[in-house]
Each structure stands twice: as C-alpha cells, then as structure tokens.
Design a protein around this nucleic acid. Sequence first.
RNA 1: GCGCUCGUAGCUCAGUUGGAUAGAGCAACGGACUUCUAAUCCGUAGGUCGCAGGUUCGAAUCCUGCCGGGCGUACCA
Length: 550
Amino acid sequence: MNGTTYLIQKLSEGLQKIGVHETADLTIGLERPKIESHGDLATNVAMLLASRLRRNPREIATELVNALELDPKLVSQVDVAGAGFINFKFGIGYYQDALQNILQRKDQFGSDTWGNGERVQFEFVSANPTGPLNIVSARAAAVGDVLANLFAATGFSVEREYYVNDAGRQIRLLGKSVSSRYMVLLGHDEPFPDEGYHGAYIHDLAQQFLDEHGDRFAKLTQDERCNELAKLTLETILASQKAVLDDYGLHYDNWFRESTLRDANSHFTILDTLTQKGHVYDEDGARWFRSSKFGDEKDRVLVTKEGEPTYFLVDIAYHADKYERGFAQLYDLWGPDHHGYIQRVKAALLALGYRDGAFEVNIIQQVNLLQDGEMVKMSKRAGKIIEMKELLEEVGKDVARFFFVARRTQSPLDFDLDLAKNTSEENPVYYVQYAHARICNIIKHAEERGVAFPESARLELLDKKEEIDLIKKLLEFPDLVSKAARYLEPHRVPNYLQELAAVFHRFYHHHKVVTDNLDLTGARMHLIHGTRIVLANALRLLGVSAPERM
RNA sequence: GCGCUCGUAGCUCAGUUGGAUAGAGCAACGGACUUCUAAUCCGUAGGUCGCAGGUUCGAAUCCUGCCGGGCGUACCA
C-alpha cells in the first residue's frame, strides 16, 4: 500500500464528511516536509480551502482531522501545525508492509505502468558521420539512454533512434576531403576542399583505404572517386561510432538514414503538402516556408535558389515520418547550437497538422573540457576534438555515465579531465557502488557464519532511527522515478543514489547486521537486501554497474 | 538589438514544480579502525538564494525591470 494514495483517499472521504466537495481546482497535495519533526507527509489542503470558505485554515484543518478515520497501525500521529498544515506520521506497521513490498517486487520495485504502453521515441546523439563521436555526444548519449530507461520503467513503450545524416553537402565534402588526402599519398596533387574536414582521422582513413584497396580509386574520375570514398568513409566512421556506443552500453533500436528519405523523395512530398496547404511561397529565387505564421520568428528557406533542398526541408520530412510510424510522443535531444532551430521544426509540424506538444526538444548544454586548468575548444572542422572513445578509456563507462547524468541537462558542464583521470578517490560513483558491494559482502559473511537469508523476518524489530530512515529513503524511489521521467530530469537519479548510499553507510556504522540475536539479524538482512534491490534498480536505470565486491 | 539559457556556501551542484528553520559533495579544521571492507562514519565552520520591485496566507521557485556569464540569431548541417 502506497502511503500517499492511502492518505489522499482518506482525506477525500474526510472532506466529504465535513461537507466540502472536491472540484477541479482543488487537488489534495501531499508532500514530504523538509523538517523531520513535521512528520512524514503533510498536506496544505486546509490552506487552499481557507480563501474559498473564508475561514481560518487551522480551523478547517482541525475539523478535517477530526473527521478522518485512519488505521492507527499505519498512521501513528496526525497534527495540525503552522499556518494550517496537516502533518502525518507513519506507524511501524506501515514500514513493515512497505519493506515487504520491496522484497516481493524485486527488480520491479520502482517501475510503474502509467505510461500504458504508449509509444514514445527518443532521438539523441545523431552526430554527423563525418568524424568520431566527441565528448558532447557522450553526454547526450548518457542522458538519452537514461531518459529512455526512465520512460520504459514508467510503462511506456520506448524506442531509441539515431538519425544518420548520410546525404547532402557535408557527405560530398567528406568524400572530397578523403579523396584529396588519398591522392596526395599517391603523389598526385588534388586540392583540398575549402571547408573540408581537417582532422587527422581523415588522413588515417585515406591511408587505411590505400592499404586495403591499393590505388584502385585513383583510376576513377574525380567525381566517381569522391563518391566511392564518401560511401566507404561514411560506413567506416559509422561502424566506429556504433562500436563506441556499444562500449558505453547504449543500444539503439533504429539507425535511421537520411538517404532513405531522399531516395523516396519524401522531402518533396512534404513540400507539395505544405504548398497545397498554402504555407509556401517563392521569393528571391528561393522557396520559403511561412513559419512565422506558426510561432517562428521569421520564414525559412526550403529550397535554395540553386534548387537544393535545405537540411530543414529534409528534417521536416524526417519528423513527419516519425509521426507516421505511430509514435504518440517524440523527444529529441539536441546540442545548444540548435536551440534556435526548435521553433521552426515545431512550426512545420504544426503546419502539417500534427498535434501541438507531441514533439519536444531537450537541449543538452555543452561540455567544457578543462585540461591543465584551461578550456579546450572543440571543433570538428578544425580537427581539434576530444573523442568519446578516449574519455571511456580514461575514466570508464560507469564514471562517465554517472557524471554526465548527474547535472541538469540545461546547465553547461565543466569536465575537468585531469580530475576525471584521478577519480579513484572521492568519487560519488564509487561511493554508491561501494554501498552495494558492502551489502553483498555482509550477506555473504552471514552465510559463511551459517546464517541463511530468512524466508520471513520480524520486521517490527526495525525501530531504530537509522533503520527507519533507511526504509523511508527506499520508499522514495518509485516517486523519484516517475518524476524524473515526467519532468525529463534524469539527474534526480544520481542525486538520489548518493543520498541513499549515505543513509545506508550511516546505518552500517551505527548497527551491526550479523549478531547473536537471530531475529534481529534476520530483520536487518531483510532491510539491507531491500536496500540492495533499490541501489541495483537505480544503477540499472543509469546503465552503471552494481559490483558485488570492490 | 532580438531569442534561449544560467546566476544558491571558497569550488562543483541539489532544492520534491509555490510551503514551515536553505541542502549535499569537494576543499578547510577536529575526531572514530581489536569491528559485517576506513572506497566509510561523526562533528565544527561556511549564505543578502545576482539586484530591485510585484503577485498572496507563504517566493530560491511565478511575473516585470535591471546587472552579469554562455549560446544562438545562414538560401551550413
């Protein structure tokens, strides 16, 4: 039994009895007071009623409390306090039931079904296949994966998608860049394109292709060579991106290629639709979308005066395609340099008649990489790039994921590489993992002493402050998961884990689990086993491992 | 100029979507290993929640205006 639902039901009955009828503008809210002495849950419903009934809130609260019929084993104390708060304190029976519930639900504890199987898609990272994934992609990858996990845990049917920009101008540039390097290696002089990709990896790829294919490409026309090399480069880079994400424990359900839209002429179909709806006009030789009619600050070009479809036009087709695939809700995670782009895509989807709000964009702020106390600027074009692969080699996936998710996505993140490298001490990841390992060790130690994990336990023996605090913290988990999902705030999970680990470590230092008192030992083993379950469930949401020993 | 975003302890950040007396971790200082792992724990100190108004029973949170930092403001992707 969930304490909040129980009390809301009882409060609702109580309101009926004192003659107050619930309306849409009156919701019974319960929250956990910051100050422990104020109880376990509090409601402000009397204060909300005060202005409506034109009565003193404390008076209403007192009347309501008198009308409540609560089970004294579950709720041990009810007070009217402050300006008119009603404070509730749970009884020991409540905690016994709750802990029992955690042990029964095991890895399902914290999961919910309110998403009702609704299909939701997360599209994230989607880096251009023109170079290795960088450290910003690593942040987006962690955040997106955890958000998807959170939605899955709250009952949604989630798909992870990666959009591969495998067509258009940039791919042509990529082909020309590699082709130039390749030809130079063979002693020919082929000029490097103006806005080409300068990274060292371009040179390395040219060398690799030379080793694998010899001078075969040199015999083609330049156009053919650029084309062939573009394809080969694209697939090679894509494969290495996949490999890095794989090491990160991130697996996409779908790799969607831009070329499938272009091959099917989907973007021109969309252009026709928009034109028929009267949202397109010609000016200065280009073809424009009247996005200012749909909340964008100005109109946008769909087809350039050279007749080239813009990235934007193809992107509209892409997002329309997602809707057509049957998703009820779309979430995109974009980089900070794209935030000016959100409104125009939303405008286009509105113009096409899709439901307002069904497409949301979450901006993942930049990562400032600090090295030797200085900020390293990252730019693919300039070739200075800190690769995600390097980061994983330095700090490992557990530390990287935890750190990236631990901050609000809309805040820029300073990543001190020097600090990250020597994370073996003072690291919150290890602090949390250590709590898990410690529990596993205690259970193992108990078994070595011949104390098997008991089927049932006298949980009423758990009445010490540190024990109750621990159970309370465990019980916060389901609500935490649903709020982290609902508000798209994955950083709540690492924060919660640190708090939970702290409460557990405190309990550990105050009380021994394995003692001569078999009943107490059994009860505490149930308690720490419940703790282990919640630690493991939360770590699983993060994609961070839960080691059994450290 | 316009748009988005951030501003909370020396540093890095939380703050349960408007609740009661502002919270952690680092860093500083002082303690705790004969113990189920000290990768831990206990304690001390640290604040004009950028500034000023407003909304109401009540504001770090919502509104307005300033100040300061970041990003964006392409017929690039």
